[in-house]
Design a protein around this nucleic acid. Structure first.
Lengths: 207, 207, 207, 207
DNA sequence: GATGAATGAGCCTTCATTCAT
DNA sequence: CATGAATGAAGGCTCATTCAT
């Protein structure tokens, strides 16, 4: 009669946490369900109580990365301050967030390559829609391009800046991330300033 | 027997070519020896005539990527022109090369994530030396840092630029690459100029 | 405590009812404990309150089929009427009963094939006694053979009829059942008469 | 260069032979791929060189049973002799064939029950058409009904015999088979005559 | 008693690697 | 040299059974 007291959703979250840690450590491809189970401290079969398949787990991790991305760009919308400053904040915020959650960052890098054979895409090709990584970056660039344009109108940056320059800003962040992940000695968190300075200076109106 | 040697090496190269194509298309993890054999037009077992194991193939692909990187940085050493220009050439050259060889570029992205469980690193940990991706980027930044310093002395860029700014330049390139690979509509080749302009301007002495 | 007993037994019967329905629908092999629980409207674990194991459930279903068979043959013992008529009644009764309980009939067919690896026979071979399907049919034929002999003495059928002819009568019934189960359009219930007529005529003394 | 000398088709047939033996012994449901491999004297994985999946193996066995059935009914078409005799021959031929290939017969019985969830029918329901067991028996009855009608016109049997009586004849054969499979002491092969005699006598014109 | 979360043995399937031809 | 049949270890998933609540 007494339904066992387990918060299913919370437990599911625990398993996903564990999965994210293992994915970050081993990569998607090399991660076996058993690894996730071990990390979560449960039995192999129990993973299937919360996720339908290995693939569902991948997709959930993917969704988490996507959610984080959205939080990131959403934060840049804070109005009331000059666009250049919001831009600088966005860059700093992005770097800080990525640096604070290296596991998710690593997963994102994994997604860059897995992107071709998206998680949830069985060999045949019939895939779950999952998260469209291209869309994530498109949104990212779009937000930045808007800020660049606004700053251009403010006279803080050159006028006429657009998608290309937005791509460069995004690139500086993601590229710095890569270098850090490949070589932990690269001081990613400290690169927020050089990135901001270099890019914003580089986009200032020529004297 | 000498001709045999040549033939053998050429054959090996053919197989590696095929492997690179498949790796780029499917990713490391999803590529089976048989896929490579099929792409190379030989039998599965024959792959083992040229490579000791699946892993050796991975390492060979890695080596090829690394070699490409070295060619890249080596080219920047051409003296006789001002450092700023050699820097701009380096950026443009890198972008052009990556854009021209998307297969190798894709593999490089794959390596970023696989890097943790380095190709050649069996679960146990006793690994073949493989190649050190961190080292590749360290060299890359080093070359650029030297050019930045030289340009600083030339008065073309701010003095005092170092590793951090070099990382930003590398980041802009690699980050742009990622966006292109994730979303083919991003005009990677055309980003060479925005990258160069933004970064170099951003590093100019303040007026 | 007595009421508890009754309750428990009734519950057990409910579960077995549910099991029989599912067995008939899905077949033994494809039926999971959870299916039975769902059909019975209880939780998976609760099935074990009434049956020691999946196998015990199978055996109970078997027992039910066997009990039905016994009721069938027992009914044929009614004396006081000529043997030929009791024989005809037996055939009609059997067909009617099978037609009325297709679920049990389906299970019986399942038992024909599962019979080899008798329910209750774990791979090792140390088995619970379970029920002997061969014995069920032996009894069936025996009753019929007795009726045939008696009818022979009555002069209604040929003398000298025995096990072989009894087997033919049983065969006609079971074989008709099979055809119905395989193809629901076969009018099994209506075959009682053709079976009776054909067999009994066929066993009449030659003119 | 030297393509290994193995007759793929023959090998496949060997594996299927082994599978049929195991299916007959253990039943479909209880048969693991490894059992088949062991019976065939090969490694588990090698089964997959010849069959795409466990299910494909089931379907192949199924097809073999179907082919046997067709041979059976086809044989009854021999014209040039009176229909009654061809009918008697058909019954005897069927019994002889079933008795000679008990493995296939056992599989057929397995199919009767598995018929619901036909081999090749994944849980979802999207099935390969495979063999329609209902169709097999329909054809069987149809051939017999034709012979009965012809014999009726010949005056050897009652006129007006049809599907129902055909079903009884088929039933006698299949039902006898069941009894034999359930209890090897039942002399199935010897039942050909009692079946023929009983049924044909039973269908004679009343004096 | 009842529940359903948890477990882990077991089975199907894939694929790197070997080796007889 | 080249082949591709054969192998068997590994990993995903299912499900009977147990047990804390």
């Amino acid at each position: 009669m007494a339904p066992k007291r387990v918060d299913r959703a919370a437990r599911r979250e625990d398993v996903l946490d564990a999965a994210v840690r293992v994915f970050a450590r081993r990569g998607f491809a090399a991660t076996r369900i058993e690894d996730v189970a071990a990390e979560a401290g449960i039995a192999k079969g129990s993973v299937y109580l919360y996720f339908d398949s290995r693939d569902a787990l991948l997709r959930a991790a993917f969704a988490r990365v996507a959610a984080r991305s959205e939080r990131l760009t959403a934060a840049a919308a804070r109005p009331g301050r000059p666009a250049v400053q919001r831009l600088a904040d966005l860059v700093r915020g992005a770097v800080a967030m990525l640096a604070a959650e290296p596991d998710l960052a690593r997963i994102m890098v994994d997604l860059w390559s897995t992107g071709r054979a998206r998680p949830g895409t069985p060999p045949g090709g019939t895939a779950a829609p999952a998260l469209d990584l291209a869309e994530v970056y498109r949104a990212y660039r779009s937000v930045i391009a808007d800020l660049l344009a606004e700053a251009g109108r403010d006279g803080d940056l050159r006028p006429g800046l657009g998608q290309a320059e937005a791509a460069v800003v995004v690139a500086a962040i993601e590229g710095a991330l890569v270098q850090w992940l490949v070589d932990p000695e690269v001081p990613f968190a400290d690169l927020a300033d050089p990135i901001t300075t270099t890019c914003l200076n580089g986009l200032r109106p020529r004297p």
